[in-house]
Nucleic acid binder design. Structure first.
Lengths: 198, 198
DNA sequence: CCTACCGATCGGTAGG
DNA sequence: CCTACCGATCGGTAGG
C-alpha cells in the first residue's frame, strides 16, 4: 500500500476504475464527465479510451464488481452459521462491512444502475435479485423454523432491511467513533428485535 | 381534473414544475435537460425562462415544496394521537401517503439535493433535520415512557426507519394490489415489532 | 412564447 | 498517452 491506501501495482486501467468509482459515487454518473475522470487520473480525456471502451462500460464494470462483492461476502458470511437469527445477523454484518469498505461503490450499485442501457440494466437487476434472495431465504427459513414470527410478511421485512442497509452510506463513516461491528450489532438488534420490549 | 389527472387551472409555471418533477425524479437532475422539460410541456427551451429563473432554482423549489409536504403531513398526523406507538405509526403512515401520492418527489427530495448549490443544500439539510427530528422525538418519548425498549439506540432506530421509508418509492406502486393503508400497517409492524415473536 | 443564437462542454475518434 | 478535432448538446439570453 502507498500513502493513498492504493496498491503500488495499480495499472492505468485500475486507476481509472478507482477514480471513476469515487466520482460516480459522489456526483452521480451523468454529472461526471470523462474529462473529470481523466483529470484526476492525470491524463487527457482522449487517452482514457486506450484503456476502457466507454463511459457506460465503465459504469457497468463498477456495478458488476460491486454486486459480486456483496454476494460473495454474504455467501461467505453464511457458511458455517446455522441459526436463522445468526444467519440474518451475518448478512447484515457482511453488508455493513462492504459499505464501510466502499460507500461510493454502494451508492453506484444501488442508485446509478438507471443509467445503464436496457440490456445491462436487466443483467444487473438479475444479480440484485440474487442478493435479495439470500435475505428472503434466511428470513423465510426463520419463519418456517418458528424462530421468527409466523405472521411476518417476508417481502416487507426484506425490503425494510435492505432499505435500511442501503441508507447506511449516507451516515456511516468508516473512520467514525464506533467500530463497524458495534454499528452492525446495533443495526441488527434494531431490525430484528424492533422497538418493543424483548 | 382533466384526462391527465391534472388540474384544469394549471398555468404554464405549474406545468413546468410538474413535468420537471417527473423527469428529475425518473432520470435525475443532471440527466434531465431544459430541452427535455420544454418538449414535454410543449414549448421551446428558451421560453421556459419567462416562467422560471433557471434549472437549479427549479430543483430547489421542487425540493422545498416536497419537504414541506412531508413535514406538514407528519405534523397533521401527530395531532390528537397520544400513545408513542400510535404516534410512530402515524408518522410511518403519513410518510407512505406522501410517497404514494408522488414517488418521484420523494426521490428528488432524498437524493437530488446533492445538485443544489452549497447555500441551498444547507437550507434543505436544515429542513430534512426538522423532519428527522419528528421521528427522534416520538421514539425518544416512547423510550422515556417505557413503551419502547430502554436500551434502544435512538439514532440507529430513526435511521433504520427513514432508510426503509426512503426505499419505498423503489417498490411501492400507488396502483398496486394492496391498498396503501395495508402496506403502511405491514411496514409499521415490521419496523416496530421486528421479526421475533411478539 | 418563438427565432436565432451564445460560449462551453459533452463522449468519443483519427493519427501519430 | 498526446494533439487536434468531430458533431451534438448543454443552460441560458437578446430581441421581438
Amino acid at each position: 500500500m502507498n500513502g493513498n491506501g492504493t496498491s503500488e501495482l495499480e495499472g492505468p486501467r485500475e486507476a481509472i476504475i478507482r477514480v471513476a468509482t469515487g466520482l460516480f459515487g459522489e456526483r452521480g454518473f451523468p454529472a461526471t464527465s470523462m474529462r473529470d475522470i481523466a483529470r484526476e487520473v492525470g491524463i487527457l480525456a482522449g487517452s482514457l479510451y486506450a484503456h476502457i471502451d466507454g463511459k457506460e462500460t465503465l459504469l457497468l464494470e463498477i456495478i458488476e464488481t460491486g454486486i459480486a462483492e456483496y454476494i460473495d461476502e454474504a455467501v461467505a458470511a453464511l457458511t458455517g452459521k446455522n441459526g436463522s437469527e445468526e444467519r440474518l445477523r451475518a448478512l447484515i454484518r457482511a453488508h455493513l462491512d462492504v459499505v464501510a469498505r466502499g460507500p461510493r461503490t454502494t451508492k453506484i450499485v444501488f442508485h446509478q444502475w438507471r443509467y445503464l442501457s436496457e440490456d445491462h440494466r436487466a443483467l444487473v437487476r438479475h444479480r440484485r435479485d440474487e442478493y435479495e434472495e439470500l435475505f428472503v431465504q434466511v428470513v423465510q427459513a426463520g419463519v418456517d423454523e418458528g424462530i421468527f414470527a409466523a405472521d411476518l410478511d417476508v417481502p416487507t421485512v426484506v425490503r425494510s432491511i435492505l432499505g435500511a442497509l442501503n441508507w447506511t452510506p449516507e451516515w456511516l463513516r468508516a473512520d467514525g467513533a464506533d467500530p463497524i461491528d458495534v454499528v452492525a450489532q446495533r443495526l441488527a438488534d434494531t431490525l430484528i428485535l424492533g422497538l418493543c420490549h424483548r
